[in-house]
Amino acid sequence: MGQNFQLVVVSAGTSDPSSTRLLADRVAGRVETLAGKRAQTVGTTVIELRELASEIANALVSNHIGPKLQTAITTLRHADGIVASTPVYKAGASGLFTSFFQILDNDLLIAKPVVLAATAGTARHALVVDDQMRGLFAYLRTVVVPTALFAATEDWQDNGLNKRIERAALELVALMTSGFEKTVRDESWGSYQHEYGSAGGTELTIDLDSDLMRLAAGGGTAN
């Protein structure tokens, strides 16, 4: 039996349908097809950040995670692969997009394979994905596929975009198939920084064998 993958599309597009979402959907479609050829199945879930806008703003200013946001976090926690897509505003990813990823726990997305995609009205924004968005996803310790996707208005008529989508989709399938995330998480989870309650509220293990725990129990010296 082939593997079954959960693919999560995160779109910060604002119109319905938006070209941002359209780009992400095309990646998701290719991922499903390519995986299908390997007898793998893909279930795709879409997170439209537009619907979470007020909860994202609340979380940023008051640390209060609303129910829709919690659902999105849980969905991402179970993702085997992510397609993250945003419009470019003022030479940067949408504030909605960066805000969403900024409120996630640092360890929520560790080792998850990601395709990054952006849309813009002009090709002058073409380096936003590689120059700006990659840094955010490196901080989150995701694995971003080598091919960055960017679509300015003119790219929608250019078969080159389809080729790049195909490439990015294959790279994502290859990373998901490799079991990279599972290996890292199974064997090395403890070597990343975690806080109590992090990883979307699931990191609730308590290590009794630490200097601080010994100090808490009346003795020893702290680091």
Binding site: Y196, I206, L208, L212, M213
Partner: peptide, 8 residues
């Protein structure tokens, strides 16, 4: 959110 405080 601090297990060490609960431990103490």
């Amino acid at each position: 959110r601090t297990p060490e405080i609960a431990e103490q």
